[in-house]
Write a protein that binds this DNA or RNA. Structure first.
Lengths: 157, 157
DNA sequence: TGGGTTTCGTTTCCCATGAAACGAAGCGTC
DNA sequence: GACGCTTCGTTTCATGGGAAACGAAACCCA
């Protein structure tokens, strides 16, 4: 959008938001089309595929999603037979969640696909640039997380 | 979250999303509290404050928001007396939208506030890092935008 | 052992968002 | 100037997602 130099366009949080949005859009449509998964489900699958079996609480921590979102995603995946629950002997309130064979096989297809897509999206960046983006985002995220942690400490007091 | 090294956590689009989300959250709550504005309204105000008067269509272009979102934001701002419509002689379907005196005065308070907040959030980065981040995000955004432009060309064919 | 508190998962409710359908005005062409 | 086609804005509808309320299980401590 040449010629558009409002202050909003220069505003870093705004740029972050629209870029993230654009990227998410591409990714979501890709694996929405191929696997019928939406973002939350995809994230749960991704984590479970790596971690083996987890409770919903653990999934919340790993995905940083809301517990309701995790719950819904799990329900979806269970209905589609990609995920199964087994009793948790250590805690009767929760279950162990793990991918079924079908789930594992989908998971095995997802990563190459995801890798491929991100490769295409971020091919405009050098490896060094990507690494620096990763680090920078991390710094910012940590800063905000710390900030909020300190906030809630204050709330308690 | 030490020890959490799933592949999802290393996935760049994921990091982008959670970081953007975290930042947006801080900003939104800040000017939600002080001015009773939500993101879309804030963006519209920001652009109008810079540009003088625009139609909704122009606002869509400038903010990259959906036309429905722009419409709703304008309606809100109008109800609160921050924005006024005047007839558009050149095109009877649309109106010129501009900030009222109240709107202008809010706008004048918003930017210092916004600047301050982002300063706090991004204080963990050096000036060079911020510039780098800006450029990198821009590259990625452009890449995706181009990609989608090419997509829709193909759709037409 | 029993009452109070916390935690996990689930349900319910509400709001924000975007897609699609729509009227109204402009544009172009004949 | 009448007809279709496009564009602007608005409304309606469906969906996603989070906050809050809830039941059930676990924990705690006397």
């Amino acid at each position: 959008m040449p010629g558009t130099t409002t202050r909003l366009a220069d505003f870093l949080p705004y740029r972050l938001a629209i870029t993230s949005n654009a990227v998410s859009g591409v990714i979501a449509s890709e694996y929405g089309d191929r696997f019928g998964l939406r973002v939350p489900e995809w994230r749960v699958m991704a984590v479970l595929g790596d971690a083996g079996r987890l409770t919903q609480r653990q999934l919340v921590r790993a995905t940083l999603m809301d517990k309701v979102a995790v719950n819904r995603a799990c329900k979806q995946l269970e209905e589609r037979g990609m995920l199964a629950r087994s009793p948790n002997a250590a805690d009767g309130r929760s279950h162990h969640l793990a991918l079924t064979d079908d789930g594992v096989s989908i998971h095995a297809q997802i990563w190459p696909q995801a890798f491929d897509t991100t490769e295409r999206i971020f091919s405009c960046l050098s490896e060094a640039e990507r690494e620096m983006l990763r680090r920078t985002l991390d710094k910012v995220f940590e800063a905000v997380a710390d900030r909020e942690a300190r906030q809630s400490e204050n709330d308690e007091a």
